[in-house]
């Protein structure tokens, strides 16, 4: 049974020039312990659909869906208290800019202990002990000293590890990672992806990875959803997607990868669409 199941999700934003549809009738589901990658370019609505699930969109957004369930429970009309109970405990999220996600005025230890005390009701002493344990689990060197560091004293990769530690603190069953490695160097990206995959396997949590990077998809996903301009173009398991992409947009995206270049020119997505039209 699907852990998270969304049917026909549409998100519209009220703008000065009228209504804008960012997500247009998308179905997404993720099973227990599964890694789902949602891949798309800017403006494809890949982040917006997940923010809608988390209830993090501004008031200008109108969200409609035929079905929006988590673990068989309807989550489309939760009260704020119910939502707080679910989000941050059962479902957690990490974002692209780890340094911007942390409060610069407090030590990272204070911020993670706050999460542990509020969400899990731990005492200060227990929160401290658990925070150190989590720091070790996510591979932060010298956790005893780093726990009293401020975000600016840590590198981007370390800040992302802190964010991951916070996100897994409550043993969530679903972690949504929105471009978790886009701001990081490739060697650090590799470490963070390896860490996410290890935690995912150790705890059996489901992972939704939102990314624009086909390389990240290839290295992590079980199943892939390709989005373009708010619509789902294709959904397939990772091997079939790379081996025999069905939708022209997916084919275009894959052939635009520089490592797939044959000859002097890179095929572009618009080349592809014009060929399709000509056919």
């Amino acid at each position: 049974m699907a852990l998270l199941n969304i049917k026909n999700l549409t998100v519209k934003f009220a703008t000065a020039t009228g209504s804008f549809t960012a997500v247009d009738g998308i179905d997404v589901h993720v099973d227990r312990g599964e890694v789902l990658a949602i891949v798309g370019e800017s403006g494809s609505g890949k982040s917006v659909s997940m923010l809608a699930v988390m209830g993090l969109l501004p008031d200008t957004a109108t969200i409609t869906a035929d079905e929006m369930t988590y673990d068989g429970r309807d989550i489309s009309n939760l009260s704020d208290a119910e939502r707080r109970h679910l989000i941050g405990r059962e479902i957690t999220m990490i974002f692209q800019e780890p340094i911007a996600s942390l409060n610069p005025s407090f030590t990272v230890g204070f911020q993670i202990e706050e999460v542990l005390r509020l969400n899990l009701g731990l005492s200060r002493r227990d929160a401290r002990a658990r925070a150190l344990e989590l720091f070790r689990a996510v591979g932060i060197p010298n956790p005893e000293t780093k726990i009293d560091a401020y975000p600016h004293q840590m590198s981007g990769g370390q800040c992302q590890r802190v964010m991951i530690a916070m996100a897994i603190a409550s043993n969530p069953r679903l972690l949504i990672a929105d471009e978790p490695t886009t701001a990081l160097d490739v060697t650090i990206q590799k470490q963070i992806l390896d860490l996410l995959m290890k935690l995912q396997e150790d705890f059996g949590m489901a992972l939704i990875l939102i990314t624009h990077d086909m390389g990240v998809v290839a290295e992590t996903a079980d199943r892939v959803v390709v989005q373009y301009q708010g619509k789902k173009m294709e959904e397939a398991d990772v091997l079939s997607l790379f081996e025999s992409p069905q939708h022209p947009y997916t084919r275009a995206l894959l052939s635009a990868l520089p490592e797939h270049a044959t000859g002097d020119r890179l095929p572009t997505v618009s080349d592809f669409f014009s060929q399709e039209v000509a056919r």
Binding site: T187, Q189, L193, D213, V216, A218, L239
Partner: peptide
């Protein structure tokens, strides 16, 4: 650096 770069090669997947 090479080892850390993700590959989209079907055999590797």
């Amino acid at each position: 650096l090479f080892a850390a770069t993700p590959v989209t090669d079907v055999a590797a997947i």
